[in-house]
């Protein structure tokens, strides 16, 4: 990507209010926009800058901030560059607009995110179960979902009692630190 194109894209992006542009490399641009400005940004990128390919929508659960971060990655075949548009939405109620009308593949990603994070995308064609068809627990990628607690409730572990262990227990030894307690030091003050 030539210097000129870079310059041109930066100028174009300035049209969006509240935008913050960070150039990560010659082919990667990160932009942070307010959530309500994202459709306008994508329209601009698709219609005027040639970013016609939505390669992914990713989601991050920032539970301490009470926010979800959605990242829209759009690719241009013309200047071979990727723009990642980051927005933050409130965790509750966790509703956002679908960009299906701009990029049809969005339907696929939004369905996935809905399933994994429980975010509702208004206007998305299909919010049915996707991969977790037989799952009836909470959206498992949300940070409040405790995978280990879920496992302990629903599944059981192998309970070994080999001879050598019985011998050690008879001697006064035995299991001192089970592996569950080894996840760093869990000591509370």
């Amino acid at each position: 990507m030539t210097q000129e194109v870079t310059h041109w894209l930066d100028n174009l992006l300035k049209e969006i209010e509240g935008i913050e542009v960070r150039r990560k490399s010659s082919r990667r641009v990160r932009v942070d926009v307010p959530a309500d400005a994202l459709p306008a940004l994508l329209e601009l990128l698709q219609g005027r800058a040639g970013y016609i390919h939505l390669s992914a929508i990713s989601c991050v659960d920032w539970i301490d901030d009470d926010e979800f971060e959605l990242v829209y990655h759009v690719w241009s075949y013309e200047n071979h560059s990727l723009v990642s548009a980051h927005i933050r939405i409130a965790r509750e109620p966790g509703v956002y607009l679908s960009v299906y009308d701009l990029y049809q593949p969005a339907g696929f990603f939004e369905r996935d995110i809905h399933e994994m994070y429980g975010i509702q995308f208004e206007g998305s064609p299909n919010m049915e179960k996707f991969i977790l068809t037989e799952w009836d627990g909470p959206p498992p990628m949300r940070k409040e979902f405790d995978s280990e607690a879920y496992i302990n409730e629903h599944l059981s572990w192998q309970e070994y009692n080999p001879e050598w262990l019985q011998e050690l227990v008879a001697e006064g030894g035995g299991v001192i630190i089970p592996p569950e307690e080894q996840r760093f030091s869990q000591k509370k003050k």
Partner: peptide
């Protein structure tokens, strides 16, 4: 028990050998 702490699969149990 450094081995236990580094094990990401929780495969290691520390056993007392009196």
């Amino acid at each position: 028990s450094s081995c236990q702490k580094v094990c990401d699969n929780a495969a290691i149990t520390m056993v007392k050998v009196p």
